[in-house]
Amino acid sequence: MDCDVKIRARNIDFYYRRSRALKNISLDVLKKRVTALIGPSGCGKSTFIRLFNRMNDLIPGARVEGQILLDGFDIYHPKTDVVSLRRRVGMVFQKPNPFPKSIFDNLAYGLTITDVRDKEFIEHKVIDSLKKAALYNEVKDRLHDNALMLSGGQQQRLCIARCLAVEPEVILFDEPAASLDPISTRKIEELLLELKNEYTIVIVTHNMQQAARVSDYTAFMYLGELVEYGDTERIFTVPKEKMTEEYLSGKFG
């Protein structure tokens, strides 16, 4: 069982200025599975996954205690190279955030920053990633149009494709459908289910049905604490904790 753990978080505490945003969280993310983090807004689920690719480094006054291991290696070790970590752990954000560049350039960006110059390779990779993100057919005739011309749902799939082009091992989704309409959301969810064969996926969502539809494992967080973590089906049918049950039945949150 242990060999299947991709990310292991051990006793994580996260402080922002004086407040303690995450309280002693330990959680294992399994390889090539979809793990969902649910909970009411402000419970710290976004903060938590942003630790996995060290995006919280950008916040002044933030501090982490505890350990996060990626394939057994400590990502908060002083010698850890953040840039290579982020290439292994990709992220898709809540609001689609394509660069104000062409569709092609958006996808090529992750490659050109590592000084990949081979044009053929880049083009192949761009098309391949667009296909994987189920966007290729919609944009194949306008690869050089500005990415901001796309619809919100297309933009989000573009961001997923952009992330895939870097060939990450883990992809973090921070409420990827929060700003999208139901049809676009549906498409993103289908995509997630396809991607889980190849990637380890962690998704934050406040939409319980979404968690139930796409994830294998679910973690319920409340006020910075991990309340319950386990098999999605079990969590949704026979939650152990009373708090989880109340949240799932819509009593709060």
Binding site: S84, R86, R87, M91, K95, F99, Y109, I113
Partner: peptide, 27 residues
């Protein structure tokens, strides 16, 4: 320039200088 551009670039494994010169300044 929206913070999201910067975050997207960093999350793709660009360093700060690359993010600045290739994303922030063009935007």
């Amino acid at each position: 320039v929206p913070r999201s551009f910067r975050e997207a670039s960093l999350a793709l494994g660009a360093n700060r200088w690359q993010t600045l010169t290739r994303v922030v300044v063009p935007a």
